[in-house]
Structures are given as C-alpha cells and as structure tokens.
C-alpha cells in the first residue's frame, strides 16, 4: 500500500470517528493497521443478549421507555425473544455484541456533539397518493398487429380486385380548343363546384373552403367540453354532422345531378356526366 501522508490519514480518521462515534485515536490506529478492527455490526447477527437502555437513552437523548418499546416491537417482528433490558447487568456482554451506541469504552457520541431526532407530523392530505388506475390492456403483439395485418391484406385484396375489373379512365389527348361539356373537377372538389352555381366564385371557390379548413383546424380550441361521451356533446356532433352531410349532398349533387352547362339533370334520365366513374356506372 502506498504511503499516505499523515495529515490526510488524520483527516480521514477524524471524519470516520465522527461518523461512527468512536475516538479519533482508535480509528487512526486501525487505519495504520496497528490494531485489529473492532467487531462490526455484522457480528451482532446473533440476537443481542441485552442492552443497557439507560446508557443508550442517556447518550442518544431518546426517552428510555421509547427505546424499550422499539426493542420489544422489533423483537416481536423478528420472532426473537425479547432481550433482557436492564440497568448495568448486561453491560459486559453488550460491549461485545450490542450495536455501536452501547459500546462502553468509546462514548456513542463524542463529547460536545449533540444528536437529536426530528419528528414531524405529516397531514394525510399532504401525502400524494400515486396509484395507477387499473387498465385493461392487451399486448400489441400478437393482438393488434394481427388485426392490422389482416386489415392491410383485406384492403390490398379489395384494391387489386377493384383494379382488375375497373379501368381507370383515359379519354382523348388533351385538346385546348375543345372543352368538354360539362367539364367537372375531381369528385372531391365537386361540392365546391356545385357551390359555384349559387355563389360568387370568390365566395364559393376560396372563402368558403378557406374558412372551412380554418374552422376544421380550430375545432379542438373552440370545443372546450372535456367529455367524450356522445350524450354530453350533442351540439358539437350536430354541427359537425350537419357540415359533413352538407358537403356530401353537394358533392353527390355536383357529381350526378349536373349535366351539360352544369345544368340540373336526372342521372337515370339523361345519363351520368361524371367521367371519373363513368366507366364503372355504365
């Protein structure tokens, strides 16, 4: 072992002596390897024969009857016989095996050091009860992944079958000089095109869809109702459903009930003027 300077050894011994409640000289001697280490608490694995409670109470400042009660309770919990608690009769055996505060030669607390215990009253409300709510949960693998995989296969099968039997439209080469009558936007814009029949193009083509998208995005910030139960949010559901239905009706109307010149038509009388799905429906 490397030579440790005396002052460092001394400082270390002082700190350890303070922590363990022994004298500095004793610890210093032990550190230098001049004396065998005193029995540690591991040696007191055997039930302590007896403790000098009076001396303990004196040194630690805890009333003797409390120490006695604690000792009884611990003995009861560990299933051992209650050790004899006496005045000084057991002192001789206690020095060998009892916990350190009882060691007679070295005072439990160095002179001039006061120890104290802090007791505090914790109100029931101040304790945060961290309780996980019981969740009924299932493993994603295999339960959810299996469902997703089947859904994926079903979707792909549907798409392939659809694509085998339905031809995507391909009309004549684009001709700038020949506008088909009627000319319609893709189906998802036909609700807007339908509104062009009623409103100014600026209103129907830009302002309504623009405000519609903005309103859609703002739903969570406008709807402050925290409940998700349908019975608690009848108004929200009513408004949303109204707009969904309005969009659907306008789209269907624009798709099937508008013929040449975007005039009203019955699809069963005049045929379908909707090239997107014409191949399918005829």
């Amino acid at each position: 072992m490397a030579e440790i300077p005396e002052h460092i050894l001394r400082r270390s011994a002082e700190a350890r002596a303070k922590a363990e409640g022994r004298s500095v000289e004793e610890v210093l001697a032990e550190l230098k390897g001049e004396a065998p280490p005193p029995p540690t608490s591991a040696a007191s694995g055997a039930a302590p024969a007896g403790r000098d409670l009076a001396a303990e109470a004196e040194s630690s400042g805890v009333p003797q009857h409390l120490l006695e009660r604690a000792m009884r309770a611990r003995a009861k919990a560990e299933g051992k016989p209650v050790p004899a608690a006496g005045g000084g009769a057991a002192t001789a055996t206690a020095t060998a095996t009892a916990p350190k505060p009882a060691a007679a030669p070295a005072p439990a607390v160095p002179p001039g050091v006061r120890t104290q215990r802090l007791l505090t009253v914790v109100k029931a409300g101040a304790i945060q009860q961290v309780k996980r709510e019981p969740h009924d949960k299932v493993n994603v693998w295999p339960h959810l992944l299996a469902i997703e995989f089947v859904a994926l296969l079903a979707c792909l099968a549907f798409l392939i079958v659809l694509s085998i039997f339905l031809e995507a439209p391909l009309l004549e080469f684009a001709n700038f000089n020949e506008q088909p009558n009627p000319s319609k936007a893709p189906w998802y814009f036909l609700g807007l095109q339908e509104m062009l029949a009623y409103f100014d193009p600026q209103v129907a083509g830009v302002i309504i869809p623009g405000f519609g998208l903005a309103a859609l995005a703002m739903i969570p910030y406008v709807d402050k109702n925290p409940s998700v139960r349908p019975s608690d949010r009848k108004l929200a559901i009513m408004i949303f459903t109204f707009f969904i239905m309005a969009a659907a009706v306008l789209t269907i109307f624009g798709s099937f009930f508008r013929g040449p010149g975007f005039n009203f038509t019955y699809p069963w009388r005049d045929g379908i003027f909707f090239d997107d799905l014409k191949a399918i429906l005829e």
């Binding site: 080469f173 684009a174 088909p180 319609k184 936007a185 893709p186 814009f189 062009l196």
Partner: peptide, 15 residues
C-alpha cells in the same frame, strides 16, 4: 394529359 385531366384541372385551378 387527356381531356379529363386537362379540363378538370382547368376548373379546379380557375377556382
């Protein structure tokens, strides 16, 4: 780049 594409996009982008 057929008639359907050209005129549908014309209607859409006119909006």
């Amino acid at each position: 780049w057929d008639q359907l594409a050209l005129w549908a996009v014309t209607v859409g982008s006119t909006m």
